[in-house]
């Protein structure tokens, strides 16, 4: 569906995208994961033909984003990170406006958006600006889908959304995917990466890895242990002083620790910590998560 080949985009002195390449297959739920400022929005604006790359080539469904942008706009639905519908039009007016603009009608594609739109239909005469965050998002998604696009692109749709709505939203994306629509979504949340079929990790304008979430986790090669003790703060400091330390990062009430050699000798480590007078030391081997892999990649 999407073929990105070595695109580069610079804004004056900063590089937003540095020779980025990847492919998204038809019907895939594909995630672009990365922290703020990694270049995700720039990438999406290029794919939606809102921005021209400095170099490189992007094909969407076999169409060039620069030459055939008109065709691409007909088959793409885009939901920008910022709510961009008319706040002074009602829910229904917004939906109808976008349906007409795409040369279709609400009735024709109602079955596609029914699950999403039915949540906000009771408020169809309310101004879009007066909706709550979760409802705005559902309206934006409805408007992006109203012309039954082949490709749906969502720029950080769950940023600033509560945990329950986030889960609900991902369920909706899964449903959309089942309708045969390719979904490209970006997010700064690592846990959401697990919900995608394939993801790319982006950091500082570059792609660090591309695989399925499971594949990414499997690529994590080191031993990973979780350590905890009474004085967590001192524990982190002491672990970082340990000669073989690779990383010691605080994850809630535990420290995830990895060694430079990759292997961890449990007894030696506990001895060291006891010598540093730590009490109540807990030590267990854990399975790496996707976040661990990302942190490994950027370190």
């Amino acid at each position: 569906m999407i073929n990105i080949f070595q695109i580069t985009k610079k804004y004056e002195s900063t590089t937003a995208l540095d020779s980025v390449s990847f492919q998204v297959d038809d019907g895939e739920l594909f995630g672009v994961i990365g922290p703020d400022g990694a270049g995700k929005t720039t990438l999406f604006r290029i794919i939606t033909s809102l921005l021209l790359p400095d170099s490189g080539k992007v094909m969407v469904n076999g169409l060039d984003v620069i030459k055939d942008y008109r065709e691409i706009r007909k088959i793409t639905g885009y939901m920008p990170g910022r709510f961009s519908l008319y706040q002074d039009l009602t829910v229904e007016e917004n939906l109808q406006f976008y349906a007409t603009v795409f040369g279709t009608s609400v009735k024709k594609n109602y079955d596609l958006i029914k699950d999403i739109y039915s949540h906000i239909e009771p408020f169809k005469n309310r101004l879009a600006g007066k909706l709550s965050g979760g409802m705005k998002q559902k309206l934006a998604l409805s408007c992006a889908l109203i012309h039954r696009p082949q490709l749906l692109i969502l720029d950080e749709p769950t940023t600033g959304v509560d945990a329950v709505s986030r889960k609900e939203f991902w369920d909706m994306l899964k449903k959309i995917q089942r309708e045969g629509i390719t979904v490209l979504v970006s997010t700064p949340y690592m846990d959401e990466a697990l919900l995608c079929e394939r993801v790319v990790f982006m950091e500082k304008a570059k792609i660090l890895a591309m695989d399925s979430p499971q594949g990414l986790i499997k690529a994590y090669s080191r031993d990973l242990v979780s350590v905890s003790a009474d004085d967590m703060h001192r524990l982190v400091v002491d672990l970082r002083k340990y000669p073989d330390v690779n990383s010691a990062l605080l994850f809630g009430h535990e420290v995830h620790y990895t060694s430079r050699s990759g292997r961890i000798n449990k007894d030696e480590l506990i001895n060291y910590l006891q010598k540093e007078r730590h009490n109540n030391i807990k030590f267990r081997k854990i399975k790496p998560g996707i976040e661990d892999r990302f942190l490994e990649l950027i370190s």
């Binding site: 939606t48 033909s49 809102l50 008109r70 706009r73 007909k74 793409t76 885009y78 920008p80 910022r82 709510f83 961009s84 519908l85 008319y86 706040q87 976008y98 603009v101 795409f102 040369g103 408007c143």
Partner: peptide, 13 residues
């Protein structure tokens, strides 16, 4: 300013 043009620009208008 409100960003609504962004949504308009991705349409075939």
């Amino acid at each position: 300013e409100l960003g609504t043009i962004e949504q308009i620009n991705v349409t075939p208008i």
